[in-house]
Computed example of a mutant assay.
Amino acid sequence: MQCKRAWVSGRVQGVSFRAFTRMQAERLGLRGHALNLPDGRVEVLVCGQAQAVEALLHRLHVGPPAARVDAVHVETADVAQCPPGFRIG
C-alpha cells in the first residue's frame, strides 16, 4: 500500500475539483480525502495500490474542465492517516 499527500494550486476551488477527485479515487479503489484549504489550494490524501495512486496523482494535474491546475506538490504520507473510504470537505 502506498500513501501520498498532494497540494494542488491554481483555480481548484469552486470548480468541482474535490468531487472530480473523489470520483476518480473511487473508480481506482483508493481511499483518502480532498479538502479545500484557506489559501485556495486543495489538499489530497490518497492511499492504495501504488499504480492506482500514481494514476490519480497524474489526473490531479488536469482536473475537471472548469479547473486550472498551476502546480501539484506531492509528498509521501503515513498510511495510518488515511481514512476509510474517500471523503471531501
Score class of each variant (00 low, 15 high):
Q2W: 05
Q2A: 09
C3A: 15
C3Y: 03
K4C: 03
R5K: 11
R5Y: 04
A6G: 12
A6Q: 11
W7V: 15
S9M: 03
S9Y: 04
G10T: 06
R11S: 01
R11L: 10
V12I: 11
G14T: 10
V15D: 01
S16L: 04
S16C: 05
F17T: 10
A19V: 13
F20Y: 14
T21V: 11
T21L: 09
R22F: 07
M23N: 14
M23W: 14
Q24I: 12
Q24L: 13
Q24R: 14
A25E: 02
A25G: 07
R27V: 09
R27S: 13
L28Y: 15
L28G: 09
G29T: 04
G29N: 06
G29P: 01
L30P: 04
L30S: 10
L30I: 07
L30T: 09
L30A: 11
R31H: 08
G32F: 03
H33L: 07
H33V: 06
H33W: 15
A34T: 14
A34R: 13
A34N: 07
L35P: 08
L35T: 15
N36C: 14
N36R: 14
N36Y: 12
N36A: 14
P38K: 09
D39N: 15
D39P: 15
D39V: 10
D39M: 08
D39T: 13
G40F: 13
G40V: 08
R41S: 12
R41T: 15
V42K: 06
E43R: 14
E43P: 03
V44T: 01
L45A: 02
V46M: 01
V46W: 00
Q49T: 00
A50M: 05
A50Y: 02
Q51D: 03
A52F: 03
A52H: 02
E54Q: 14
L56H: 02
L56C: 04
L57M: 06
L57P: 11
L57C: 10
H58N: 04
R59E: 15
R59L: 12
R59K: 11
R59M: 11
L60P: 02
L60C: 04
L60R: 02
H61F: 13
H61D: 05
H61S: 07
V62E: 14
V62I: 14
G63Y: 06
G63R: 07
P65N: 06
P65F: 12
P65V: 07
A66I: 13
A66P: 08
A67W: 14
R68V: 13
R68D: 15
R68W: 13
V69M: 08
A71E: 10
A71W: 01
A71S: 10
A71M: 01
A71K: 08
V72C: 08
V72P: 00
V72L: 08
H73I: 08
V74C: 10
E75H: 02
T76H: 05
T76A: 09
A77G: 04
D78Y: 06
D78T: 06
D78A: 15
D78Q: 12
V79H: 02
A80K: 09
A80N: 12
A80S: 08
Q81F: 13
P83F: 06
P84L: 03
P84A: 13
P84K: 12
G85A: 09
G85T: 04
F86T: 00
F86W: 01
R87Y: 09
R87W: 01
R87M: 04
R87C: 01
I88D: 00
I88L: 00
I88E: 04
I88A: 02
G89P: 00
